[in-house]
Design a protein around this nucleic acid. Structure first.
Lengths: 219, 219
DNA sequence: CTAATGCTAGACTGGTAAGTATGATGCCTT
DNA sequence: AAGGCATCATACTTACCAGTCTAGCATTAG
């Protein structure tokens, strides 16, 4: 339980010495990591004492880095959104054919089902979207909107298949995938209504490609 | 709003007298209505004092009808699930052709976007799915599963269009619709990424029908 | 009338939590 | 060496809240 590896160490040891800025950001990091675990596990109702304890830091230190609980919470959500946003679709995917492309981004999206942090974040943001609408709006504008936008752009630019409404189609694909995550993991529905990811992905690919056939009148 | 016409077996003063059972259920009703407003507005962290006040009832009365906060909360969610479950798809829809059927149930599902109670319930159940997994499982097994089941059954039985995987297709349709509700209303995304419901529905109909064309090889 | 039952209003208990205050300790800079 | 700064441990203040208790009030039934 008790852990104090830092206190009794040597005096100087230039190798390990850290300047002020480093120490500050290190503490801030520890706090955010502790807050991450506690907030994601317990929701916004988690206590600041629990967060400080989890971070291995005095409560006062938390308050010296963050004005109050809400500031810490917002900073954490910002950070998490940034983290997950970076794992979007990269440029090399754009060269794929439609079927492979849809399949690939479906796999990427559904792979987040295995990420406890992502599932908890989703639950937390939706659950607190009443109390903190600005956070859910941040989620929408930073993660959902760009994702759907890129997907729609791909569909629009694709020469292989012509889509009558790429934006709406992108929303359908995204909705089917995210709702699968919410249903299976966030709402613990995987036991009551199991379904392998592959089946969902196959059906999505089929639907999207054959829906596109409608407008395919090039040759 | 509505009075109780049930009090038939009254012995004396027929006009205004109410028997014990009626009075009991009336109080219980007031409590549940107050709890509904307060829980849906503030989440599970709402105080019992606030609920009693909103219900226009003494706090002790709340505790004489419900063992504790959790019991009241569970009873309320049960009640709400029952209420929304009843508004499902009725038998007369089954005679519609595929396009009209999909369009109709899409409209029904999306009409709940305008229902503050439904949107709040969705937020509440997802938000508390960490603390109260049994409630989200109830939601899944009582509302989502039967809904998807009926939709899949329709798709499976439909002679007009043949679907290679009706269950997965039903999930896609349902996911696209529910996620639209979550994105636009629960997470306040309707300003950041507006889209008319009709556009979504049209695209869903197109996708579903043309996807079915694939397996249509009867003649 | 009387007893029973349900309700009300308010006080009370015990516990938790946000945020502050205090005094001490150790590290860095000058 | 000395002052400054971040940190630490702990206690404190204030407030809220779940759940209980009490005493009085109203209606109903015997």
């Amino acid at each position: 339980m008790n852990s104090k590896p830092l206190s009794g160490s040597n005096s100087r040891t230039p190798e390990e010495s850290k300047d002020n800025v480093t120490r500050l950001t290190e503490k801030r990091e520890k706090i955010l990591e502790g807050a991450l675990r506690v907030f994601l596990a317990q929701g916004y109702s988690a206590s600041m004492d629990a967060i400080a304890a989890e971070a291995g830091v005095a409560k006062q230190t938390v308050y010296s880095h963050f004005k109050d609980k809400h500031s810490l919470f917002s900073a954490l959500i910002d950070r998490l959104l940034d983290h997950f946003v970076s794992a979007g679709l990269t440029a090399d995917l754009l060269s794929l054919d439609a079927a492979s492309f849809i399949r690939k981004i479906s796999h990427i999206t559904l792979s987040r089902m295995d990420d406890w942090e992502y599932v908890s974040l989703l639950r937390l943001i939706i659950g607190e979207s009443g109390r903190f609408p600005e956070l859910s709006e941040l989620y929408v504008s930073h993660m959902v909107k760009p994702g759907i936008q890129k997907l729609a752009d791909y569909l629009r630019a694709n020469q292989q298949v012509r889509f009558s409404d790429p934006d709406a189609t992108a929303r359908i694909i995204h909705g089917a995938l995210i709702n699968f995550v919410i249903l299976q993991e966030v709402m613990h529905g995987k036991h009551a209504m199991p379904m392998p990811r592959e089946r969902l992905i196959n059906s999505i690919v089929d639907m999207v490609l054959f829906a596109g056939e409608q407008g395919k009148q090039s040759s």
